[in-house]
Simulated scan of single mutants.
Amino acid sequence: MSGKQKPYEISSDVFVTGTLIWYSYICPREVWLMSRQIVPYQDDRRLEYGRAVHKVHSDETFLIMEGMRVDSYNTETGVVVEVKCSSKHLESARAQLRYYLYRLKEVGVKAVGVVRVPDEGVEERLEEVDEGKVLEDIKRVKAIVALERPPEKVRVKYCKRCAYREFCWPV
């Protein structure tokens, strides 16, 4: 890449991702771990469930750009869909979707977003993107990633079901 660095670039080949945006609303430590390719326990039942929900409710053809992989994009309607397993994290899902819409707009793609929680029948539409919020989210992720060490452990309500739980809270 040449020219001015984009706000979502961490370096010339490392980008803020939609997933990092999503996790920044849940646990900064997860953001740091993921940014270092420290993966959670892959056989965690919640991760397996999430993969199964995505397999059933996402399109075979999805949209991929540097730092993002959209679950579903309909070129005819311009609708970007982000599929989630639970409505417990709607704020995070909205932030992730805002990031995708921001990135698409930047390359000239006009789109609207939908957060879909199929198991709960929840569907939220997002038509306007607050670019200031997106840039704040990006800035927050970049600050976490720039840390030399992971953020301190802070027990939150999601820890007991987190696929990283043994990394942070060994038995």
Rank of each mutant, 00 (worst) to 15 (best):
I38M: 13
I64L: 14
R98C: 10
H54K: 12
F62Y: 14
I38Q: 10
Y73K: 02
S87D: 12
V83H: 02
K110H: 03
G50P: 00
E127D: 09
K133P: 01
E131V: 04
E66F: 14
G108H: 05
L135R: 11
N74R: 03
L135V: 05
V112I: 10
V80M: 06
Y100F: 14
K88F: 01
Y100H: 13
S72G: 13
G78F: 03
D59T: 08
L90I: 06
Y100N: 11
H57G: 03
V81H: 01
Y41H: 15
V129F: 08
E60F: 15
V39I: 14
Q37H: 15
E136Y: 06
Q37I: 13
G78I: 08
K110F: 02
M68S: 11
V114Y: 09
L97G: 01
V129A: 03
P40S: 09
L135K: 01
R116C: 13
Y100S: 08
K110S: 06
E48R: 15
Y102C: 06
D59I: 03
G108N: 00
L101W: 01
Y41D: 15
A52Y: 01
G121V: 13
I38R: 12
S86E: 05
E106T: 15
R69W: 11
N74V: 07
V117W: 07
V112W: 00
S72D: 05
S87V: 08
R69N: 09
L101Q: 01
E48H: 09
A93E: 01
A93H: 03
K55C: 04
K84Q: 00
G67N: 06
E48K: 14
Y49E: 13
G121I: 12
L90S: 03
E120K: 08
A93F: 05
P118I: 03
P40W: 05
G108A: 06
R51W: 05
H54V: 06
N74S: 06
